[in-house]
């Protein structure tokens, strides 16, 4: 049904995209806001990384992708905490502004190919061979960020981010402004998401100004698939779920590509997956009530 080759390809892509889901884990699950900056910061990461790769500095490009994402997150956080703009709108504003900035970063071009440039992936492939190089590079990046996330959310600063999302009142009673948690969380989330964009640009050897469109939905789909398979719980379990979910999502996409769904319908598939997965609890409880009503009617 699906070749080993395309399975490995899906795993590699899944591991790269898992960083988007990890970023969204911070904003959507920990801070409990749907942060639409994601679409823009992903593309910003791709643009920064591709731009510096063309000058022969792919690793610096990845670093700058992360830094760019952090700055994008800081802008959204500023709009939310200081300007008191609703979280969703704050994200949309930053995302819209980033579209122009991303074009500027890529030298006013819609896309930037990296066909002959050295990237993180070509560097690792030179050592480990074409077959495994890409997978190892993507896996190392994903595990590194996953490990960092598990550690970070257990530190005092990480606890502040978690409290800011779950109960800001408690944070105030601990003499910490909830804004600190929101700023830290959004900066880190978008930094990680931009790093994902940066890695993707170097892996597929091009960056495009529309690369990030719908990335929130893609990330949430991976996150939710992971939670369904591995379950929710402590950070460690959630992060394992994200890694699994991201790879499974890419396999689903690979299968969809092989069927007659066609590449142009992929976003629709992602949107449907997310809509169903997020509404599952509501559907489940409605079903329970329906069943009990029936039983009650039968008993009476």
């Amino acid at each position: 049904m699906i070749s080993i080759q395309s399975l490995l390809g899906a795993a590699e892509q899944g591991l790269i995209y898992s960083l988007v889901a990890m970023g969204l884990y911070i904003s959507y699950r920990v801070l409990e806001v749907a942060d639409l900056t994601t679409d823009g910061s992903f593309t910003l990461g791709a643009a920064c990384s591709a731009c510096l790769a063309t000058t022969g500095n792919p690793l610096l490009g990845l670093l700058m992708a992360f830094v760019g994402g952090v700055l994008a997150g800081a802008v959204t956080a500023f709009l939310q905490t200081v300007c008191k703009i609703q979280p969703i709108l704050a994200g949309i504003i930053t995302m819209t502004g980033l579209y122009s900035i991303n074009l500027i970063v890529m030298g006013n071009r819609q896309n930037l190919p990296l066909l002959k440039n050295s990237t993180l992936f070509t560097m690792v492939e030179e050592i480990l061979g074409k077959q495994m190089g890409g997978l190892v590079a993507a896996g190392a990046a994903a595990l590194l960020v996953a490990g960092f996330l598990v550690w970070f959310l257990s530190t005092q600063l990480g606890l502040m981010v978690r409290a800011a999302g779950n109960n800001p009142t408690m944070l105030v009673t601990c003499a910490v402004s909830p804004a600190i948690g929101v700023v830290t969380g959004l900066c880190l989330a978008n930094g990680i998401i931009a790093l994902s964009g940066g890695l993707l640009a170097q892996q597929q050897k091009f960056s495009d100004s529309n690369l990030g469109t719908g990335m929130v939905v893609v990330g949430l789909a991976s996150l939710i698939i992971g939670e369904t398979i591995v379950g929710k719980g402590k950070t460690f379990r959630s992060v394992v779920g994200i890694l699994v979910g991201s790879v499974v999502y890419r396999i689903i996409i690979a299968l969809a590509l092989r069927s007659n769904l066609g590449a142009s319908n992929l976003k629709l598939v992602s949107a449907v997956i997310v809509a169903i997965a997020i509404s599952l609890p509501a559907i489940r409880s409605a079903w329970e009530v329906h069943k009990r009503k029936k039983e009650a009617a039968a008993g009476a």
């Binding site: 978690r162 409290a163 779950n166 109960n167 009142t169 408690m170 009673t173």
Partner: peptide, 15 residues
């Protein structure tokens, strides 16, 4: 209101 439900007892106390 006074505690963070998603965090453990130890994590709440640490904050």
């Amino acid at each position: 209101k006074g505690t963070v439900p998603a965090m453990t007892v130890a994590e709440n106390l640490a904050l």
